[in-house]
């Protein structure tokens, strides 16, 4: 283990370390803590410039109710869900198929296909903006949930395929071979043998891709414009203008927008990190 475990160090070091942890956390998360504090402040506090002191009253329920009642925040949240969930499913489904092909079949273009998927994933996506926008418009999908879903599936497929391929490569070939000997069709092999084995990878990937898509802002600006479709990221920034200096409400809105991926992260932390650190331990 590196650095050396402090278990065997002096009592002083141990105590100091344990005290320093919460302090560093507090410093690290200070901007966020401020936002959370502000989200429960009263407008009087805000107007009197009491931003950093102790709140004079806790308006937790009022402020958060206000966010949902007087703005489209509820709609934005719903839109984000309606866009993110199908997009995650689509991207994971397509890339599992493609990942299987790249992992378990030897064919000439194999490595090049993989390179294309990876390269595409790293592209500065701004270069896609104008053509994708035109494409979406000509498909009649501009300003629809489907328009964003389709794009996210396509774009995330690059990363997801790499991920699934690297996972499936590790599955034992013997299983597939013996099934083939028994005359099982290729698709059935995929469905009945491969799919059950990749379940943990699917979970890791889904959680990770969920946050990517949920937090997307650029494409939400480019492909969507009405409140009935707009996801929460773009919604939040459009609310910023409407609420004037009601920073308590803006903060509450920000907390609401951040909540779903944060919850998911804490609930599925291990999967999440496994997905994220893909490749970080191999060379």
């Amino acid at each position: 283990m590196y650095p050396k475990s402090i278990k065997n160090s002096s009592r002083f070091v141990n105590v100091a370390y344990r005290i320093s942890l919460p302090i560093t956390i507090l410093l690290w998360l200070m901007p966020l803590a401020a936002v959370m504090m502000t989200s429960i402040r009263s407008i009087q506090d805000i107007n009197q410039g009491n931003y950093w002191g102790w709140p004079t009253s806790f308006n937790f329920i009022e402020n958060y109710m206000m966010v949902f009642q007087s703005t489209e925040m509820g709609q934005y949240l719903l839109n984000s869900i309606l866009i993110t969930i199908p997009a995650v499913m689509g991207a994971v489904a397509l890339s599992t198929l493609a990942g299987f092909a790249l992992a378990k079949y030897k064919f000439k273009a194999n490595i090049w296909m993989l390179a294309i998927f990876i390269g595409g994933n790293f592209v500065p996506f701004q270069i896609l903006m104008i053509p994708v926008r035109d494409l979406t418009i000509s498909l009649g999908l501009y300003d629809t949930h489907m328009g964003l879903i389709m794009f996210h599936i396509a774009f995330q497929t690059g990363f997801c395929t790499l991920f699934m391929r690297n996972f499936i490569v590790g599955l034992p070939n013997e299983l597939l071979e013996s099934a083939r000997v028994d005359g099982v069709s290729e698709f059935k092999i995929f469905w009945h043998i491969v799919l059950p084995l990749v379940r943990p990878a699917l979970a890791a990937l889904s959680v990770l891709v969920f946050t990517f898509i949920w937090n997307d802002y650029f494409w939400a600006l480019v492909l969507v414009q009405s409140d009935t479709v707009r996801p929460v990221t773009a919604g939040l920034s459009s609310l910023q203008g409407q609420w004037l200096a009601s920073w308590n409400l803006i903060s509450a809105g920000a907390v609401v927008a951040a909540l779903p991926p944060v919850t998911l992260f804490f609930a599925m932390q291990r999967h999440f990190i496994a997905g994220l650190t893909l490749g970080a331990t191999k060379g």
Binding site: L82, I85, P86, M89, G90, A93, G140, L141, T144, H145, M146, G147, I149
Partner: peptide, 17 residues
Amino acid sequence: MKKLQTLLAASALSVTL
């Protein structure tokens, strides 16, 4: 999951229509 997608596709279609 299929159902949801069909549903979404349908709603997108109805918007176009």
